[in-house]
Computed example of a mutant assay.
Amino acid sequence: MTTPPNPAAARYDAALETAADLLGFRLESFLGTSPTEPTNAADFMRIATEHAFADAWSRTEHLDTRTRALISVTVAASLGVTEPLRGQLRIALHNGVTKEEIVELFVQVAVYAGVARAFEGYQIATEVFAETA
Rank of each mutant, 00 (worst) to 15 (best):
Met1Cys: 11
Thr3Gln: 13
Pro4Gly: 09
Arg11Pro: 01
Tyr12Trp: 05
Ala15Pro: 08
Ala15Leu: 01
Ala15Asp: 12
Leu16His: 09
Glu17Ile: 08
Glu17Arg: 12
Thr18Asp: 00
Thr18Ala: 06
Asp21Lys: 03
Leu22Tyr: 07
Leu22Glu: 04
Leu23Ser: 02
Leu27Lys: 09
Leu27Trp: 11
Phe30Tyr: 13
Phe30Val: 01
Asn40Lys: 08
Asn40Ile: 13
Ala41Asn: 03
Ala48Leu: 03
Thr49Gly: 04
Thr49Asn: 04
Glu50Leu: 04
His51Val: 04
Phe53Ser: 05
Ala56Arg: 03
Ala56Gln: 04
Ser58Glu: 11
Glu61Asp: 15
Glu61Leu: 14
His62Cys: 11
Thr65His: 06
Arg66Ile: 10
Thr67Pro: 04
Ala69Pro: 07
Ile71Gly: 14
Ser72His: 01
Val73Thr: 04
Val75Ile: 15
Ala76Tyr: 01
Ser78Pro: 12
Leu79Cys: 10
Val81Gly: 05
Thr82Arg: 10
Leu85Lys: 00
Arg86Tyr: 13
Arg90Gln: 07
Gly96Trp: 02
Gly96Tyr: 03
Lys99His: 13
Glu101Val: 00
Leu105Phe: 09
Leu105Thr: 10
Leu105His: 05
Phe106Pro: 07
Val109Ser: 15
Tyr112Val: 14
Glu120Ile: 00
Glu120Cys: 02
Glu120Tyr: 02
Ala125Ser: 05
Ala125Lys: 00
Glu127Lys: 01
Val128Asn: 05
Phe129Gly: 02
Phe129Val: 04
Glu131Arg: 00
Glu131Asp: 15
Thr132Ser: 12
